[in-house]
Amino acid sequence: MSYLKPLFKHPRLPKNKLGYTLKEYEGSLSTLCAGCGHDSISAAIVQACYEMSVEPHKVAKISGIGCSSKTPTYFLGNSHGFNSVHGRMPSVATGASMANKDLLYFGVSGDGDSASIGMGQFVHVIRRNLNMVYIVMNNGCYGLTKGQDSATADQGSKSKAGSINPFQAIDLASMAIELGASFVAQSFSGDKQQLVPLIKAAMQHKGFAFLNVISPCVTFNNNPGSTKSYDYVREHIEATSTLDFVPEMPEIKASYESGQSTSLALHDGSLVQLNKLATDWDPENRISAVNALQQARAKQEILTGLLYVNSEWKDLHGVLNTYHMPLNRLDESDLCPGEENLLSINASYR
């Protein structure tokens, strides 16, 4: 088995604004099963960061435990990383963000890591609207321990061994909207055309950006009867919209049909260009987003695309009104006002 990637690259590989090629955003060779959906998501993250000309040293990847949580090794090899305790990625991410708010935080988790052992952490990080991209690589099973049903496995889904899952599934996207996540999207590892712009928009969103990505487990959950297999997902996929992320303000073109095309502005003025496919859906309205999700579920469809976005809410730093500089960059001169100042402060209380 190959364990090293060849160092040669395509001689005409394009470069981004920083002069980097896609290669500079890759990680080591994946040790996940061949064909794992997680590898596609890793590749989508690589593609998004490359296209956004992100400086690799300004990114931190934080994960918990599980197949999904191994993936940070396989992308952004030149960025910071922290592989934490099972289900505790949100705590570590919160701590890191508190210390240095200048980094871009990628939280990578799985359905077990987020919907089971880490549910408590998941809920609270949403409540706090931490400024991060939270990706759940959702395959509906515990791949690392041979494919037992996870909490996101759909009721009635058949496992590789043939048993039918008797329990209701936790719908992470609905839950995130319910809990007040300010950016919620759903996608499929096999659809990079949708996933890459979603990741780009999530990176640019200031606040908690949640991406629930269906990612088939080729080894344990890609069998007929499973609702998380490549074939099932492709047959039941339904998109809210086709979308494109535009990092800067574009010229307004009249070619979009009215009523079909919408632009959503994010905090920094960048735009998410949507070409709506679903009717009666407004991505800035929580009720409409939840409705769309529930309707899709009733039709046994998997609704993908951008579901909900709110650019008004403040993120955790905004709520706490923290200092404009990252805390880890404050040195003694910033933190200690000096004897003279201390005396005058003290004097003011006398």
Binding site: P6, F8, K9, L29, G190, Y230
Partner: peptide, 15 residues
């Protein structure tokens, strides 16, 4: 082929 894109993602020379 199940179109998982794994080959496309891994190819070192983007072929």
């Amino acid at each position: 082929c199940i179109e998982c894109d794994a080959c496309m993602d891994v190819c070192p020379t983007s072929c």
